[in-house]
């Protein structure tokens, strides 16, 4: 299952909720304001590192670049473009947008 997050983890609990509910084998894609969760030095960094042990974590690269943080991506988070987003939606059986 693909879990799509679009909120900064510092202003919204959607990533926390996703990490609580998502089951092993799930994949997480950070888009829009959720890309901040994938940047080093962010207060959420330890949580995302812990989550990376359980889930494959992706970030939408154009959103990261737009926000001036392409050089702060946490190692191990996989950048994808919109085509990669489509591939993730296709390869997973279903997806939940944590709006």
């Amino acid at each position: 299952m693909l879990h799509i997050i679009n909120k900064s983890p510092l202003t919204n609990n959607s990533l926390d909720s996703c990490l609580r509910v998502a089951q092993p084998g799930g994949e997480i894609l950070l888009i829009e304001d959720a890309v901040y969760a994938a940047t080093s030095g962010n207060a959420f960094e330890s949580k995302i590192r812990e989550a990376m042990g359980r889930f494959k974590v992706y970030v939408l690269q154009p959103d990261l670049e737009a926000r001036g943080l392409a050089d702060r991506l946490i190692a191990g988070v996989s950048p994808v473009d919109y085509g990669g987003f489509v591939d993730l939606a296709a390869s997973n059986n279903n997806c939940q947008s944590w709006l």
Binding site: M1, R20, V21, A22, Q23, G26, N93, N94, C95, Q96, S97, W98, L99
Partner: peptide
Amino acid sequence: SCKEMGELMNQQDVVLSF
């Protein structure tokens, strides 16, 4: 529980959130 909720979610064909 959150675990049961996650398992139920995995079984769905269409998940709609608003």
